[in-house]
């Protein structure tokens, strides 16, 4: 019962990846692509937690924490690069 519901949730998250992937490839400029990248990484934190449930391993949550930290850094660095403050 629980695993069925969680499998549906995983499939829905994959559908959201496909929808944002459309915007990622079509997005007219870098800023649009970065917004999509941000949304995709934040949703993949949820996906990693779901994978941790299916594999029954708490250690995967540490990966989710580090992944979230790296995506936050990446968005800020891209934003600074767009503002031309990195040179």
């Amino acid at each position: 019962m629980i695993n069925t519901i969680l499998t549906i949730a995983t499939v829905l998250i994959f559908i959201s990846f496909i929808l944002s992937g459309y915007r990622f490839f079509k997005g007219p400029d870098t800023a649009n692509r970065t917004v999509t990248f941000d949304v995709m990484t934040i949703s993949s934190i949820g996906l990693i937690a779901l994978i941790a449930h299916f594999a029954n391993r708490i250690i995967y949550l540490d990966i989710a924490i580090v992944y979230g930290l790296l995506s936050f850094m990446a968005v800020i660095i891209i934003a600074k690069y767009l503002e031309k403050e990195l040179f």
């Binding site: 519901i5 969680l6 549906i8 949730a9 995983t10 829905l12 998250i13 559908i15 959201s16 990846f17 929808l19 944002s20 459309y22 915007r23 917004v35 999509t36 949304v39 949703s43 949820g46 779901l50």
Partner: peptide, 17 residues
Amino acid sequence: ITLAGSIFLVLGSLGLV
């Protein structure tokens, strides 16, 4: 609750499109 969260994620990506 997890299912509701994933539904909101799909709606957000639909908003992006």
